[in-house]
Amino acid sequence: MKKWILILFSNLIAFSVVAQQEAEETIEMADALRASGKIYVVVMVVTVILMGLILYLIRLDKKVGRLEKDFSEKIKS
């Protein structure tokens, strides 16, 4: 009797775990996209755009810095 209850109980746990996994897997995610590696293309594209913007910001920073330097030199002379 004790054995049967134990088997029933363990089965219940196993079923509930499987059910949970199934429920989780029915939620559609971009698994295939990520698995096939195509998401890396998007990541690269976004990274390139961001790098471009950052490089632009660095250039702008340098331009302002040069202007500040020129200005302080002009004040001195």
Partner: peptide
């Protein structure tokens, strides 16, 4: 910011219905 974009796309995220 680069870490955000690269990590943000590639890490494992929780599976939430509708939000996905």
């Amino acid at each position: 910011v680069l870490y955000t974009v690269i990590g943000g796309f590639l890490i494992k995220v929780p599976r939430i219905a509708i939000v996905q």
